[in-house]
Amino acid sequence: MYDAELMAVATGAAGTLVAAITTSGVDKMRLKVAHFFRRGTPEQQRAAAQAVDDIAATLTSPSAEARELAANIWTRLIVQYLAEHCDAISEVGELAVPTPPASRVWNQHNTGTGTFIGGDVHGGLTFNYGGVPDGGR
Rank of each mutant, 00 (worst) to 15 (best):
I55H: 11
L31R: 13
A88Y: 00
R46S: 08
S24N: 10
S61E: 15
D53M: 08
A51T: 05
L17I: 04
A83L: 12
R38T: 15
T60L: 12
S61N: 15
Q50Y: 02
A56S: 15
I89E: 11
G25Q: 02
A51I: 01
T16A: 14
G12K: 11
I73H: 03
A70W: 07
A70T: 06
A83G: 09
D3T: 02
S61C: 05
R38H: 15
E65Q: 09
G25D: 01
G15Y: 07
P98G: 06
V79T: 12
A47C: 00
I89K: 09
L6A: 07
V92A: 04
T60Q: 15
D53N: 09
T41E: 08
P42G: 08
R46W: 03
F36Y: 07
F37T: 05
A49G: 14
D27E: 14
T75G: 08
Y81G: 02
V52F: 02
R30C: 00
S90R: 07
V52R: 10
V18I: 08
L31V: 15
R30L: 14
T58N: 15
R67F: 05
D87M: 04
D53V: 15
E91Y: 07
S61T: 14
D54E: 12
A66S: 13
V52Y: 08
E43Y: 09
I73A: 10
S90E: 03
H85D: 07
E94F: 08
V97A: 14
N72H: 12
Q45N: 09
T58F: 01
I78T: 02
A88Q: 09
Y81R: 04
A10Y: 11
A48T: 06
A47W: 02
L6K: 11
R38Y: 05
I78C: 07
S90D: 04
E91D: 10
D54H: 08
A14E: 10
Q45L: 02
A57P: 01
A88L: 03
E68T: 11
A34E: 10
Y81N: 05
V97L: 14
L69N: 14
S24V: 00
D54L: 08
V79Y: 03
I55C: 13
Q44F: 01
P98A: 06
T60W: 06
V26S: 15
W74E: 09
T75E: 13
Y81Q: 02
A96P: 01
L31F: 08
A64N: 07
P62Y: 00
R39M: 13
R67P: 03
F36K: 06
M7W: 06
A88W: 00
N72S: 12
C86N: 14
P98F: 04
G40W: 01
Q45A: 06
A49M: 03
A8N: 07
A49V: 03
A19N: 12
E65A: 07
R67E: 11
Q44L: 03
Q50V: 09
S61G: 08
